[in-house]
């Protein structure tokens, strides 16, 4: 890269400025050491915690779902109260595919992703009607509630309140049976999540991703620069919906069950909480938040079994009152202090 810049006559005259500019532009896309550590640790968990694969699968699915929400909240600035709609749709499509079409998991995954993505494309324009946050909240919530009601009423198709019966999933790639201990399931979830993460990372560090950041930062300016705000938001919304659909499908396929619970309001609220626990706008927030959420949930349930939501609410409230930015800056501030001490 730097070779081509240097050989170019215009930049050759001022290699310094050109290099600095290029370095700055490449900054967001560069793989940081902490990222490599994160993924190595995640991969290691597969071997180090063999008896926890079921729980770990749950965490990864929740993390992927929260990652999809981060794409629209963190990168497009759209607050959604109904992201569960896409998760639930993906879950049901995966279930129905297995019952009526084929038990082959990848087919179900892809069809679920498509269905959720199409729903995102179809309902996304509603977000652009009046760009007020309250309207967006209500539209996303409304779509999710509509879907829940629809699934509830269409009991002939979805099994209604009893859940969809008879979901069976064939061995992955025809070779790996989904076992009782969740080993195949966890490997499957990990690989799918990692692949989608790489895809999402690629998208948000592209020029398109940069234009989303600009829209979130200052839509007025973006518009006056000729950036087509509507289509850009629609694009990321559909992409986010697609990923949420995959997360839903993973849940159905690894638990071999799907019920109305996947569309309930608390799914949308929980995933928001997960994302906030981990931090918004840097893609890892969802994954880290999912781990924190499950740990907290475990801990609170141990104290007061039925009322863990109370403590979760309290944690969320404290996070907001302290200020999310202050909390997000905490690790960086600590790191800086540590480094300074190193030098001293």
């Amino acid at each position: 890269m730097s070779d081509t810049t240097l050989s170019h006559p215009a930049t050759a005259a001022r290699p310094d400025a050109g290099q600095r500019a290029s370095r700055d532009l490449l900054r967001r896309g560069r793989l940081k050491p902490a990222e490599i550590v994160f993924w190595l640790a995640t991969a290691a968990s597969f071997f180090l915690l063999p008896d926890r694969h079921l729980l770990l699968s749950e965490i990864v699915i929740l993390g992927l779902f929260a990652l999809s929400l981060d794409l629209i909240i963190g990168y497009a600035g759209v607050v959604s109260l109904g992201h569960g709609a896409f998760f639930g749709l993906g879950a049901y499509v995966a279930g129905l595919v297995s019952v009526h079409l084929t038990g082959e998991p990848l087919t179900g995954l892809i069809l679920a992703a498509l269905a959720a993505g199409i729903l995102g494309l179809a309902t996304g324009p509603l977000l652009l009607l009046r760009a007020s946050d309250l309207t967006r909240l209500m539209v996303t919530l409304g779509v999710a509630m509509l879907l829940l009601e629809a699934a509830n009423r269409a009991a002939w198709l979805t099994g209604g309140a009893d859940g969809l019966q008879g979901v069976t999933i064939n061995p992955l790639l025809g070779r790996f049976e989904f076992d009782l201990f969740g080993t195949t399931a966890y490997a499957y979830c990990l690989i799918v999540t990692f692949a989608l993460f790489l895809l999402a990372r690629r998208v948000v560090t592209s020029p398109y991703g940069l234009s989303l950041l600009a829209i979130r930062d200052n839509a007025l300016r973006a518009r006056s620069m000729g950036i087509p705000v509507g289509p850009r938001i629609l694009g990321i919304y559909a992409f986010s919906a697609l990923i949420a659909g995959v997360a839903g499908a993973l849940l159905t396929q690894t638990t071999m069950f799907v019920s109305l619970d996947v569309l309930a309001f608390h799914r949308s609220a929980d995933v928001l909480l997960v994302l906030v626990l981990g931090g918004v706008g840097y893609l890892y927030g969802g994954l880290i938040g999912a781990i924190a959420f499950k740990l907290l949930q475990d801990w609170f349930s141990a104290i007061t079994p039925q009322y863990w939501m109370f403590w979760m609410g309290l944690v969320l409230m404290v996070i907001v009152l302290i200020g999310r930015d202050n909390l997000n800056a905490l690790p960086r501030t600590l790191m800086r202090r540590l480094r300074r001490e190193d030098r001293a």
Partner: peptide, 10 residues
């Protein structure tokens, strides 16, 4: 601006 695959700065 529509390019979602290329990395920024290339």
């Amino acid at each position: 601006g529509r390019d979602f695959w290329r990395r920024v700065g290339t």
